[in-house]
Design a protein around this nucleic acid. Sequence first.
DNA 1: GAATCGTGGTT
DNA 2: TAACCAAGATT
Length: 290
Amino acid sequence: MSRYTDAIIAWYDANARDLPWRADDATPWGVLVSEIMLQQTPVARVLPVWHAWLERWPTPAALAAEPSGEAVRAWGRLGYPRRALRLHESARAIVDRHGGEVPSSHADLLALPGIGSYTAAAVASFAFGQRHAVLDTNVRRVLSRLVSGEEYPPKAPTKAETRLAESLVPAAAPTAARWAVAVMELGALVCTARSPRCADCPVLDGCRWHRDGRPAHTGPPRRAQTYAGTDRQCRGRLLAVLRDADGPVGKPALDVVWSDAVQRERALDALVADGLVDPLDDGRYALPGG
DNA sequence: GAATCGTGGTT
DNA sequence: TAACCAAGATT
């Protein structure tokens, strides 16, 4: 238990957003779906898709009964559509291996496709009230500033960060679960990446970064995430054609969305290899029917 | 460890 | 306006 815990939990109780996957009637499945959708994707864009998804597929079994292409289509423009494919695979694994109930153990969650250490800990904590260190980008940033005095954490999570996060987890599981969601929310609403609202911070007095005068990030630039002209953009265009079509489409319908034929073929092949696109025997293409 | 994988809002 | 960034996982 750290000196931050009580203050951050109290702040959360007064300032938490009213998100549907935090509601009392949210199911573990709803929490799991939210966590997958929220990977690298802002809350505002997830909300409408999450509602539609849970209404259509209120249980893992409901999703497992459909072809994977339906999941890809319902994913819409959330991005990283392989997540939709893996969520669908997870639904079938949950039916096959866990009787249709989202497993509660960290190890069982981690074994599901598309679920890594963060998501496994998040679901175990948020849906089942367990005690885990939940270390996402928000928490990494908060701890980096609060404890290390650095504006940003390292590019990739380190063992030191994991140890630090684990050292701060309250002993009692229910408190640990509240801490996990609270410190994440603090990072999302106050200790933000670009313009942190330090005036609203409940642990400003204990923040090393603030005490040191909020020194700017030193070291290499954090990212140079270009997108225009990349294979990713090309893949997005191709898949959008299939998502927006009622059924299979011919090759010409795909060809028109990207002029560079070499890149286009490479991207299409990759989509097929990923299982996001089915090449049909008649030469047309469709969302996966499995 | 580094590269790859979408999309759109914010600054 | 180009750059940054958003509850990561996989290879």
